[in-house]
Nucleic acid binder design. Structure first.
Lengths: 342, 342
DNA sequence: TTGTAGGCGTTATCAA
DNA sequence: TTGATAACGCCTACAA
């Protein structure tokens, strides 16, 4: 192991005190004279000095570490990174954090255990949490007292910065589009509708659109299971077999939409000829899938970037304290999975 | 912020010295008596003690942090996490690391900059590097003197632990399968063939299979560009338009294979009826794609788990020092994208 | 088996 | 504008 170059070595070489070095390290301009600044900078680069963040964190309580939490599979074993929605988000977050000189600890959260441990152990400067968790989880989070950005959560608590989209509107425009195209029997295929979750809002939007169009809301046409691909397949089959009246499907995630399409096709139903499908998310994968999916786009990577930027701003104290909800725009992208039937 | 509980508080509450607490913290059994052990444990849980890893890292040079590096997009901006191959791998790594009480810093590496900085700053205990980088990168890595696991690299240096598959064999069995099915004009669609990379080996396997079957190797049938989806589309179109003689394609990644299939279909060619395709990787996506892709499976998530396990073993010094290459098994998964033509 | 105390690399306070 | 020096929380000889 190469001997570690410390602030002392730099100070010695530059002929100044460690305090001076620390000042320039932390960009405390004005604390040192031009000449010493230059001496120190030279010494640092000559010696190839690399600061030790552990020491810095110990002394200053600032770690430049951000915790990023994403949901896990049911068995709490694997991260849901295979879901392109989350991986896109993480990409955005990472690129922005790196830009701002932060590092990211990506992890799931163990069942039972909370996130308190990790945040305290590592002196996290902040955290980005995706998905929704049980109540106690958030209470714990508050105890740590660091800035936290919640992605896709309708938790009603101004302590947290929340970034999301207007999910209700999303559900509404997706459904409206189908209605405009002449569909009246529109199924909803969705994940579990839980309080404070995005799904609940999309569901509301769906119902609202039906109501606005004076269409009958049929609970039998709501298929509530999961937003994963497999549930889509299952439901697609079911619709093909048992619901000839259904001519369109609004799926609350692209993944489940793709599943529906494949499930339908197993029974000879094709999209959009026989049944129209609208998805939600606009994951990068959809471009590879035939037919190209009409979907509600939410610019996922950009959201990751935004979340990271917001968090860093909060950490570095240049944020409007009062604002806690940030809503990004969405857009219906019309592609080839919807047929006009009148 | 809740006042931090330190080792001192615990010691005081348990009526022992801080040293004793530190001993039990580090599982130095035998250093403390049964009774003090119990007292300390009680004090720890009563006070809800959470150790500070920064301090620990500073004092002991052990951070329980692992660096994980994955390749980035060309512009060095975003991680390639949208590539399910990497996200699956990361899932495997994370789950295993969490199990062993390590955390993961996931990052790309900035152009120009090396990885030395991050590893030194954070006192990384080890690193997992995916993909291949330029020579200097590895030299730097060695300077840090921590265990390193390389995924998918044929770098010839025993300093690093390498985990991979027999890519040459993979290329061979994929091609052989096509040959067995009667194909003689088999195109190769692949990423850039670079030294010490996996692609080079798969390419060798391809050539070897042709040779073994006394088939003519036609350089015009090698399409070398990238392993990304878009290049596949492009090449699929090209083959459809300009290469009627080609009846089969071996694509060196599933992503590019899917691209080829879609590119072909744009010109009315369907798989496997008109052209057969074999992929490589067996990413989780393939199950959603029609036709189901015949591919060389490499059990990606498990590889991630294995890489993490290997690294932790190396860090904790229970590894056979002499062994530096670990080769995991692969398997040809026959699905629906290959047609028997004789 | 237990406790004391110095040190890890940095920041920050306070004098100079 | 500088420089000693005491924290920060933990580990680990060394001594008791």
């Amino acid at each position: 192991m190469m001997k570690r170059i410390t602030i002392k070595d730099v100070a010695y070489k530059a002929g100044v005190s460690t305090a001076a070095v620390s000042y320039v390290l932390n960009g405390k301009e004005g604390k040192v004279s031009e000449t010493t600044l230059i001496k120190i900078q030279k010494a640092m680069s000559d010696l190839n000095y690399i600061p030790d963040f552990s020491a810095r964190s110990l002394a200053s309580n600032k770690s430049n570490l951000i915790g990023v939490v994403i949901p896990q599979t049911e068995d709490q074993d694997q991260l849901l990174l295979e879901n392109p929605f989350y991986s896109d988000l993480v990409c955005g977050i990472e690129s922005q954090l790196r830009l701002k000189d932060y590092h990211m600890i990506l992890s799931g959260v163990d069942k039972g255990k909370g996130y308190l441990d990790l945040s305290m152990q590592r002196n996290l400067d902040g955290a980005i949490i995706m998905g929704i968790y049980k109540e106690g989880f958030y209470d714990e989070l508050k105890k740590v007292d660091i800035p936290i950005v919640l992605v896709d959560s309708y938790i009603n608590d101004d302590y947290f910065k929340k970034i999301g989209i207007d999910d209700e509107l999303g559900g509404k425009i997706a459904t409206e589009h189908l209605i405009e195209c002449g569909h009246t029997n529109i199924a909803l295929v969705t994940g579990v509708i839980r309080k404070d979750g995005v799904i609940e809002k999309r569901y509301s939007g769906y119902k609202q659109a039906l109501k606005d169009a004076n269409l009958f809301y049929n609970p039998d046409h709501v298929f509530e299971g999961s937003v994963a691909y497999d549930y889509g397949v299952e439901t697609g089959r079911l619709i093909a077999k048992a619901h000839p009246e259904i001519t369109a499907v609004f799926a609350t995630s692209d993944m489940v939409a793709l599943g529906v399409i494949n499930g339908l096709s197993e029974f000879g139903k094709s999209v959009p000829e026989d049944i129209s499908v609208v998805g939600f998310d606009d994951i990068s994968f959809t471009k590879m899938f035939m037919p190209h999916l009409t979907t509600v786009s939410q610019n996922i990577t950009e959201r990751g970037v935004f979340a990271a930027k917001l968090l860093v701003d909060a950490i570095e104290d240049r944020l409007d304290e009062t604002k806690s909800n940030y809503v990004l725009s969405i857009e219906l992208i019309k592609r080839d999975s919807v047929k006009i039937i009148r």
